[in-house]
Design a protein around this nucleic acid. Sequence first.
DNA 1: TTTGGTGCAAAACCTTTGCATTAGG
DNA 2: CCTAATGCAAAGGTTTTGCACCAAA
Lengths: 141, 141
Amino acid sequence: MAAQRNTRQRAAVGELLGRTSEFRTAAQIHDDLRHAGEDVGLTTVYRTLQLMVEAEQLDAIRTDDGETAYRRCSTGHHHHLVCRSCGRTVEVEGPAIERWTDQVAAEHGFSEVQHHLEIFGRCRSCVLDDAGSGGSAGLPR
Amino acid sequence: MAAQRNTRQRAAVGELLGRTSEFRTAAQIHDDLRHAGEDVGLTTVYRTLQLMVEAEQLDAIRTDDGETAYRRCSTGHHHHLVCRSCGRTVEVEGPAIERWTDQVAAEHGFSEVQHHLEIFGRCRSCVLDDAGSGGSAGLPR
DNA sequence: TTTGGTGCAAAACCTTTGCATTAGG
DNA sequence: CCTAATGCAAAGGTTTTGCACCAAA
């Protein structure tokens, strides 16, 4: 079976994402690496991110402006509560949800059940900030 | 101030989305209209959808494969239970989930809450069919 | 008549793919 | 060596934009 190789590029991407728990887009990661003196092709960034998502080392979400953002995923199953203004993310757990989805699926004869839940809203500070402007921070762009 | 005009195209898009509570992509809407004998340019579909989102008549979400899906603002919110083998979809409602997400969000100071939940599994018939093969129908692409 | 709306074609975007080249093991 | 991994350039898919024409009011 095919062995996976340790390359400078993969190490760089992995290390960068290991250092933060923020969502970053492929383009941002590519820039960050360049600024850090690590030259990694954008294509390689994309391919590395894909592998890491498949290996369940990263979570991926779609931002409102159509980019995919990646973040290292913390251990244990959880869901994301995301501020649609500033992108701030809170991880929430929901045993109730796990039970409910499994039960509903079983009722309909489904097995090998997985689910995906994201909650969007506006966090308190963004609501306050907007008291005097049509603010527009947005997820990482 | 600029007045807005009533056009055949906008009426068609509005009526189509008024009739269903499903999420539809711009391309799907464009197709639906064409099949219904209404000829509306894809560009116009996009522009109309944008206007309706701004007017808060539609909700927009990003699907995992990068398309934007639109749905008339939530009456009768429900979720999807999708078979990952054959793509069969069952709509399920979950007042419990609605309450839970709102509550969790509120606990963290989030408001204007929306959520997106999908449940994946394998339906009974696919499990049975696979008794003798490594089947692989895949989700509808 | 006035000017918002439409539709085509082209551009802009992000992401993926083909292929020759590099480099890890 | 062998072949996975890289990086460029080109292709892919969705959404947006420029512009001439059309039609609602």
